[in-house]
């Protein structure tokens, strides 16, 4: 239990610091690389919660595909590689107030509702179980998600191609 809490602390600190850097850094490429740290930390949390399949999917889909897509987007919009002034708009103070207010409300509600609920992952989520669940109970939803991905793929190509 102690080891798990130590691991959680390290992961959480790394994730929060990296997430803050994502939204404050003045370099677009660095923001994408800090996003990798946040996503990898989340994969570590999934291992802690005994959801091995989600940890692997997180690494493959998020770090492997989505971050590369972001880097392509940065490259294609020709962001300067160095520091770039003016990545933030003039609403920073207001945005900070909104975010802190939201955090206050969420933290109050969570502490109020789950202050002594413990999570001890006793069941390890096996990948085979997830597959059986997807293809038995959630087959229709799975097909819908697949169709959504196909539609967005076609839509992205139609939007982005030159003609």
């Amino acid at each position: 239990m102690v080891a798990q809490n130590v691991a959680f602390g390290i992961l959480a600190a790394a994730m929060v610091i990296a997430a803050l850097r994502v939204v404050t850094t003045q370099n677009v490429v660095h923001a994408a690389l800090y996003l990798v740290v946040v996503l990898a930390g989340a994969a570590g949390l999934f291992v802690l919660l005994a959801a091995e399949f989600m940890a692997v999917v997180q690494v493959i889909v998020y770090i492997g595909a989505i971050v590369v897509l972001f880097l392509f987007g940065i490259m294609l919009t020709r962001a300067r590689m160095g520091k770039e002034a003016g990545l933030d708009n003039e609403q920073r103070g207001l945005s900070l107030a909104v975010a802190l207010l939201l955090l206050g409300v969420l933290a109050f509600v969570l502490v109020d509702a789950f202050s002594d609920t413990r999570v001890e992952p006793t069941t390890i989520v096996r990948t085979g179980d997830v597959g059986i669940r997807i293809f038995e109970t959630y087959m229709l939803q799975f097909q819908a998600v697949g169709f959504l991905l196909l539609a967005t793929l076609v839509g992205a190509i139609v939007l982005a191609r030159r003609d």
Binding site: M1, Q4, N5, F8, A12, M15, V16, A19, L20, V22, V23, V28, V38, L45, L48, L49, F70, G73, I74, T77, A79, G86, L87, D88, N89, Q91, R92, L94, S95, L96, V98, A99, L100, L102, L103, L106, A107, L110, V111, F114, S115, D116, T117, R118, V119, E120
Partner: peptide, 28 residues
Amino acid sequence: MLLNQFLILAAVLFCIGVYGVLARRNGV
């Protein structure tokens, strides 16, 4: 581990994301 560890970490990440959406100029 307490459940709230994870929930509050997720809430912090959520609020950082909300701040980023509101305060950033660059679409990416």
